[in-house]
């Protein structure tokens, strides 16, 4: 598996740490349901998903990868810092 880091180019999956679904952190007072959803509940799609990976042994960038969980195709990868702005 290869991931196209926006900074380093295509690199082996071994360089990356996987985190999971790219979600928005709720406000502290968003309530129990919002926090439960953020931390625990997942769409867990069989298909396209947006997820966070960390280029741990590369440039140290967190990236948002668009990936298909059925085929492992990866059509997109952007810096998380830019995606979050």
């Amino acid at each position: 598996m290869r991931i196209s880091c926006p900074i380093c180019g295509e690199r082996d999956r071994r360089e990356f740490h996987y985190r999971g679904a790219a979600l928005t952190r709720p406000a502290p007072d968003a309530g129990e349901a919002a926090w439960d959803a953020y931390l625990h509940l997942r769409d867990n799609p069989a298909g396209a998903t947006r997820e966070l990976w960390y280029h741990e042994t590369g440039c140290g960038a967190w990236v948002v990868v668009t990936r298909n969980t059925l085929t492992h195709e990866m059509p997109g990868c952007e810096l998380a810092a830019e995606a979050a702005r």
Partner: peptide, 18 residues
């Protein structure tokens, strides 16, 4: 592994990742 999809048919999101 398919719990997420089947539960979604009942309108549920589960604390499960496959």
């Amino acid at each position: 592994g398919r719990s997420g999809q089947v539960a979604a048919m009942a309108g549920m999101r589960l604390p499960v990742e496959s």
